[in-house]
Design a protein around this nucleic acid. Sequence first.
DNA 1: TGTCTCATGTAAGGGGTTACATGATTCC
DNA 2: GGAATCATGTAACCCCTTACATGAGACA
Lengths: 182, 182
Amino acid sequence: MSIKYAILGYLSWKPSTGYQLKKNFEESSIMYWSGNNNQIYKALIQLQSEGCVSNEVIHQANSPSKKIYTITQKGLDSLKNWVMLNPEAPEFKKSFLVQLAWSHQLTNGEILSLIEAYENEVKMQLIMHNEKNKRDPVFPKRSSREELIWDMISENFTSSYEKELIWVEKIKKKLNCSNNKE
Amino acid sequence: MSIKYAILGYLSWKPSTGYQLKKNFEESSIMYWSGNNNQIYKALIQLQSEGCVSNEVIHQANSPSKKIYTITQKGLDSLKNWVMLNPEAPEFKKSFLVQLAWSHQLTNGEILSLIEAYENEVKMQLIMHNEKNKRDPVFPKRSSREELIWDMISENFTSSYEKELIWVEKIKKKLNCSNNKE
DNA sequence: TGTCTCATGTAAGGGGTTACATGATTCC
DNA sequence: GGAATCATGTAACCCCTTACATGAGACA
């Protein structure tokens, strides 16, 4: 899927500028794109040419002028249509596992320190995710259902990282055991 | 990371042709690329120009000729170097969560059937992963350590899918509860 | 007769990334 | 004086994907 529908999603919540959307993406773990300018501003132009959004230019005295994008009915329909599509299975892209898979040339010690570096990386990611969610979480609460859903999505991420840490402990223990046998 | 190191990994295990590498990628869940021709054959040419692999052309009577690629010492060094790089955190790209996040326009029933479609998708993926691993798993067993590592990598995938299914049950229950309250 | 396996490659395009460019204001 | 925030946009490039092209033999 492309970033288009994530943008339509934010705009279906409230109108905003490209700049604001960019910050939303940066703050969010769920919306997994980097939120770079190139993608967002291009997507907005494309969405406009498709009639899914419209914009209003606001000239400001002390800041650069900005374009406030608003979703159209066509955009709402297109979003709903996409949301109801048959979901895809999750993608687990863990380049660390590829490194581990080809660690045959390393010593036991080198493998263990590689695993510990991964452990730290995951822990950091978990902390960052939790912090993002604590301070001023940027998500809609238009109904108790919507709040529940966003909470569950956040929990999905938290527990994914936590489960990864449990797995890390397990492989560390296993490697140490077979290490001591020799 | 690019597919290059995954290819070097396979070649560090045993020499093979582009065609064989392609099949390896198709059979593997860990090596998460689609394994399409364009990428593999291009990568092999590039790896050769970097001096990381060499090839030998074999002419066959009843089949098309093939190029057997072998890893060089430079390739082994390059692979080891990459394996020892600081690992990146796992990427969880779950487009389904983006759909859920913007499901505000749907009815409770529509959301539940969306979640169930996701559940089926994850179950199928889990079954496929387990089947791939049962019948003739394509991975090296040059030492007990290597076997242990590949087993743990496979378990990482299995448990990721299983944990996702547990999460699905939880959100289904929560949505049903708040549904009944109304 | 049609599809599968072996085997190598090319064409076109989608989606994403980093870095660059501009320019005023505000805060340390 | 230097960095950060607001605000929009472009250039170059990387990685990956699907689909196309060829051509022989095996199997149903």
